[in-house]
Amino acid sequence: MARTTKVLGFSVPPEVADAFEAMARREQRTKSELFREMFRLYQRYRTRQDQSDDAWIMQAIGEGQAAPLSEEELLSESEALATYGAQQAQALGYEDLDHEDIERLIHDYRREQRA
């Protein structure tokens, strides 16, 4: 008969393992039950987080469609963002970045935030 579960192996610091085991004992659950519940909750959290990101994006799109910027306003906004970005890069010690470097840094940061 085929197994209906799969054993996972991973490492955590001893204090995390101790706290996890203590929590399972307090709740009178197995470590497997506790892990499955934690994972389900994390999945729900990520789904809601992704949905709220989507909602924010759709709201921004709606606002832009309702009151589009003029060409002058768009150029002014672009310059302000470029100035802000340059100030932040300088404050963080990044100098002489080209467009590809900036794109890479943005994508790396966003990937880290999603992980």
Rank of each mutant, 00 (worst) to 15 (best):
P14H: 10
P14C: 10
E15F: 10
V16G: 04
A17K: 02
A17V: 06
A17Y: 08
A17Q: 11
D18T: 14
A19H: 00
A19S: 07
F20W: 07
E21H: 06
E21N: 12
A22W: 02
A22S: 08
M23Q: 07
M23E: 11
M23L: 12
A24S: 02
A24K: 04
R25V: 02
R25E: 06
R26H: 09
E27T: 09
E27F: 00
Q28Y: 10
Q28I: 04
Q28S: 05
R29M: 01
T30N: 03
K31T: 03
S32V: 08
E33N: 06
L34M: 10
F35H: 00
R36A: 06
E37C: 04
M38I: 11
M38D: 04
R40F: 10
R40V: 08
R40K: 01
R40P: 04
L41T: 02
Y45D: 02
R46L: 06
R48P: 02
Q49L: 07
Q49I: 06
Q51K: 04
Q51I: 07
S52Y: 15
S52E: 15
S52W: 13
D54F: 06
D54G: 11
D54V: 11
A55E: 05
W56M: 15
I57K: 02
M58V: 14
M58W: 15
Q59N: 08
A60P: 05
I61N: 02
I61A: 04
G62K: 03
E63R: 04
E63T: 14
E63H: 12
G64T: 00
G64I: 12
Q65A: 13
Q65S: 14
A67Q: 13
P68I: 13
P68D: 15
L69M: 14
L69T: 09
L69R: 03
L69V: 00
L69D: 10
S70T: 05
E71W: 03
E71F: 09
E72N: 05
E73M: 12
E73Q: 13
L74P: 00
L75T: 08
L75N: 07
S76K: 10
S76G: 09
E77G: 03
E79A: 11
E79C: 01
E79T: 12
A80E: 13
L81W: 12
A82W: 03
A82I: 09
A82P: 00
A82F: 07
A82S: 07
G85K: 00
G85Y: 00
Q87S: 15
Q88A: 13
A89N: 00
Q90L: 13
Q90S: 04
A91F: 04
L92F: 03
G93H: 07
G93W: 05
Y94W: 07
Y94N: 06
Y94T: 05
E95D: 15
E95R: 10
L97G: 00
D98H: 06
H99T: 05
E100D: 09
E100M: 04
D101V: 09
D101W: 08
I102R: 00
E103I: 06
L105P: 01
L105A: 01
I106N: 10
I106G: 13
H107Y: 15
D108N: 13
D108M: 15
D108G: 01
R110A: 14
R111K: 05
R111F: 10
R111Q: 12
R111C: 05
Q113P: 03
Q113R: 09
Q113T: 03
Q113V: 09
Q113N: 05
